[in-house]
Design a protein around this nucleic acid. Sequence first.
DNA 1: GCGCTGTAATCAAATTTTTCCATAATAGAT
DNA 2: ATCTATTATGGAAAAATTTGATTACAGCGC
Lengths: 306, 306
Amino acid sequence: MEKFDYSALSFKSLKTLKLIYDLGSLTAAAIELGQNQPTISYTLDQMRAALQDPLFVRSGRGVAPTSRCHQIMPEIDKLLRGMSELLQPEEFEPSNANLDVTISCNQYELQIIVPSLVERLNRLAPNIRMAFIQSHVSGHRQLQRGLCDLLLSPVVRDYEALYQRRLFKDRYVCLMSAAHTLAKQPIGLDDYRAAKHVEIHYEGGWKPFYLSAPELQGVNLNVALSLPSVSNLIPTIASTDLLMTLPERLARLIGGSMLIKDPPFISDFELCLYWNKMTHHSKAHQWLREQIIDICSTLDSPRSTT
Amino acid sequence: MEKFDYSALSFKSLKTLKLIYDLGSLTAAAIELGQNQPTISYTLDQMRAALQDPLFVRSGRGVAPTSRCHQIMPEIDKLLRGMSELLQPEEFEPSNANLDVTISCNQYELQIIVPSLVERLNRLAPNIRMAFIQSHVSGHRQLQRGLCDLLLSPVVRDYEALYQRRLFKDRYVCLMSAAHTLAKQPIGLDDYRAAKHVEIHYEGGWKPFYLSAPELQGVNLNVALSLPSVSNLIPTIASTDLLMTLPERLARLIGGSMLIKDPPFISDFELCLYWNKMTHHSKAHQWLREQIIDICSTLDSPRSTT
DNA sequence: GCGCTGTAATCAAATTTTTCCATAATAGAT
DNA sequence: ATCTATTATGGAAAAATTTGATTACAGCGC
């Protein structure tokens, strides 16, 4: 006797079996299911072959379950309930959603967005585990390849197969010591070119947007200091005449008592949230994306500078 | 959007889904299942409709599961395992078999068989719950109607739709006080007819077999005492000249110091175990029937009498 | 960037499974 | 024993699955 392959059985078979069990009659089950009686017999035959047991025997006006049938009925119930739950539209309750999320971003987003996000998720959805990876220059590739679920990036572009949502605007400003030569005057283009600059060199060779400003084309900035991260920027340049050009929100966040001044060019940019089709339909991820959008919409707008 | 009816889904669909998940490729899944690729696409389409989610999205050479897909895969695993177990041939382990059994019989079987059976089941299969009901004269009817699972009866007959197995033979003997007038001699037919008899009157009007002996045809026994049960028989007749005709095994069991003598006729009978098709295929019931058969085969054969 | 390659999606036809209708067999019930 | 209600069976119709051929798509190498 070869092993029976249960693949062929459908949930309808189980449902039918249970109905026969409950009603004690094939005919009644047929009526209930809006089918006719031979159909029920046919299904029952399949189950009999599958389970190697008559399952029901004629008895009085109808059928009575066999011992085996009694035995398996609770299991069948479980399977039916399991399937029913499986097809429930994904119901998402932040407070007990269990989820792993990987978010790719760089220093800027880690500083500006991530703290609020972590705080909020920790409060509203404590069972969501977050992992942050660095985007470097290939965030969209990471996302396309499923290495992360979300990308926070200042690059606004229509990547193929990615969804996006703009979060907020920012622009570059100049950060310098209050004692800086240029502290008391608007910074002209010549001043800017002549100044001693600090740069952050990102892995992968990414260059900040402001370098693409028309006013800086063909100009080699005088880079007096190159750092791998903004983390120790302020103490490093606080008492120097070095000048750092960086996003305004970041400048305000870490700048302390340093001076923030308009640069001699316009370099607005937008921060964008990207995701892919893998998480697009997920209720949990939809909620998560909304949280990020909400956080960003309520970030303080930076005040204008001198 | 109307509620999806999961009935149509078969376990094959789930199996296919899991295979795509494990292999990350529809084509590979198709090969593994010995089908061709559009078939897998077709099945996936069904699941997509059912679950309202793409489940897999194209990614690199193959497909990657969506968030929802990750989420439901453990459930699908559970369902597949559940179904697989359901189709396992009923494996029966006495020590942890959980079962309800109803056995129909009368006083004789309750005295002769049931104590050993209860002891044995309590020892080997402590989770089998037994209920004993009285057969009266309609034991086979009870069995046919599913009111009991087993019938122990001395009536050997081919009832329709019932299975049977003979257990052991017995015969009727005469039980009397050692001081009885007939104590010192073989009992002749005239002695027997002249004696003062005790009878047990069973509910339903059942008459013991020995009354059908050819030697007693047309004879009205002199019934001096009629009791509803054998339970208080011995103390009642111990010091009288009453004579009780009853099955030998019962006589030996309850007779104490009373005298057992051959009656002036032959009245052998056999005890039989009956069951119906509802329990015929059940491994548990098969085992249970074997236990009863075994117990009966090892009952002491009654020694012959004077 | 542009074709190449491997993979999934789509379509119509072939096949298989399921359902239906009519009818026979069966087991209780009158 | 006959009657009635119910399940089983068989052949035809309907529906579904599977197939083979083809198209569309996404990475990858050049």
